[in-house]
Every structure is written in C-alpha cells, then in structure tokens.
C-alpha cells in the first residue's frame, strides 16, 4: 500500500505526458468523424454517430494518387540508397587506399549540411534535366541526402565482419564483386533494416524538395496533398482532420505492427550518425 502511494507521483507524470502527446491525436481522430455543426457545438465530445462521410469526401479527391506517389518515391529511393550505400561502404570498410578517410569524411559532412543550401541549384538542375514536376525529380535528392547516414551505418557495420570470412572466399578464387554480393551483403541484414527504416520515415514525410520540384496536384506526394486539402477545405475542420488521419495512418499502422524494430532502427540510425 505504501509502495503504491509512493508511486502516485510517477503515475501523475506519466498521465500528464500521455495527455500531452496523445491529446492532439485524440482531437484529430475524434473530429474526423464529426459533422461541421457537431464540431462547432461540442468539439470535445465523442461523435454522436461515427460518420465516415468526411473520409468519403477524400475518396473523391486525389488522395490515392498522393499515396501512390509517396509510396513509389519512398520505396525506390530507399532501395537505391541501400544498394549504392552498401556498395560505397565496402571499399571504405574493407580496403586500404589513400583516399579512404577523406572520402568517408566527405560523406559524413553531408549529415550537417542544411538541404536548403542545395535547393536552388537542384531546382535549376531538375528543370534542365526535364524532370521538373515529375515524381522522378525527387529520387535524386532523396538518395543523395540519405547516403551520408547510410554510408556511415554500413561502414561501421562492415568493419565488424571478421576478415577470415573474406580470406577463405579469396582462396576459393572469389573476386571482390562476388565476395560482396555473395558473402558480405547477406550479412548486412540488421544494418539494411536500420537504413531502410530510418530513411523511409524521413523520405515519406519529406516536404521541401517535393514543394519546390513538383507543381501539379497529380504529381504531389502525401505531405503536399495534405497541404492542398488545408487550402481547399479551409473551414471544414472535420474534413481536414480526416485527411490528416488518413495521411498519418500508414506509418502509424506500420509502427504498431513492428514497434520494436522501428524504434530500434531509428535509435541506431541516429546515434551512429
């Protein structure tokens, strides 16, 4: 009993923080099921009848196109980052050569560079490449800015793979290319998971490159689409909340399915960086 009383302050802090982090989500989801009138008269109460009409409204818009664009861009970018990042890390981790450290540092500096410093040249380059206002315009910058952290993670991970593995493969007459794909790459699974999770979340939510490099609604990614709804529905708050809920749902669902993996991947990714 005494123990329980002593734990009271802990529960109090835990619940206050629960309200702090959770209340905005409650507001968002709760409001999304209400009519405009209901929101105005009783914003806090649970909806009288769970109405999906706000969600139905979204289905008539470009929502699935936004979703599809985000999915294509994120998946392709992450796959390219994994392949190119792991390849670039192989010489950095396993071979001795003069430019090894300078090249590694070159990638590492990329983590502190504000992306805005590259925005104008990338915008002009995209126009010149004829990629402006296509979803393909986004893959280059997304890969480029995901590479630094990925190279750092892969390099550190590869350095820990024992040398003997390689030596026995070399005796068998295995060249570097086969050695990398057959032996090293399959061993990278934990690092690949970290790189994939960390970059997928960031790319899925990325905003400024999408804002500058695309223009039309049909090429918008989800974050841009959400902003479009915000302008379109103006005072129809429940409809906007439905859009925000639906837009946030994919990552939240993945999170609830693979919570531990995602949390670990994010933590590992950030600390290594």
């Amino acid at each position: 009993m005494i123990k329980k009383i002593r734990q009271m302050p802990l529960y109090l802090v835990a619940i206050i923080l629960l309200l702090f982090t959770g209340l905005p989500f409650f507001i968002m989801i709760n409001t999304s099921f209400k009519s405009q009138l209901e929101f105005m008269t009783s914003p806090w109460s649970l909806p009288d009848s769970f109405s999906f009409s706000n969600y139905a409204l979204l289905l008539d818009t470009n929502f699935f196109s936004y979703f599809k664009n985000s999915l294509i861009v994120s998946v392709i970018s992450v796959i390219i980052v994994i392949i190119f990042g792991a390849m670039a890390s192989y010489p950095l981790a396993r071979l001795k050569f003069k430019l090894n450290t300078p090249l590694f540092l070159l990638f590492m500096v990329g983590m502190m560079i504000p992306i805005h410093t590259t925005l104008i040249p990338i915008y002009l380059l995209t126009i010149n490449l004829g990629l402006y206002d296509t979803i393909w315009a986004l893959i280059g910058p997304y890969v480029a800015f995901a590479l630094p952290i990925s190279v750092v993670i892969f390099t550190q991970f590869m350095k820990e793979i024992p040398k003997e593995l390689e030596e026995s493969a070399k005796i068998d007459g295995c060249g570097h290319i086969r050695l990398f794909w057959r032996i090293i790459f399959p061993l990278l699974t934990p690092a690949v998971a970290t790189v994939a999770i960390y970059n997928f979340i960031h790319i899925w939510n990325e905003f400024i490159f999408a804002l500058v490099l695309t223009n039309s609604s049909e090429n918008a990614t989800l974050p841009l689409g959400l902003r479009e709804y915000y302008g379109e529905f103006t005072v129809n708050v429940p409809a906007i909340m439905a859009a925000l809920t639906l837009g946030s749902l994919p990552l939240l669902l993945i999170y609830f399915v693979a919570q531990e993996k995602i949390v670990k991947g994010l933590a590992a990714g950030s600390v290594k960086g």
Partner: peptide
Amino acid sequence: FMAPALIIYGVYV
C-alpha cells in the same frame, strides 16, 4: 563500388 554513390552525392550535394 563507389562511383554510383559518389556521382549522385557529388551532383546533388
């Protein structure tokens, strides 16, 4: 091994 990453990183960053 390094060219693909270096080219993308070199151009965009």
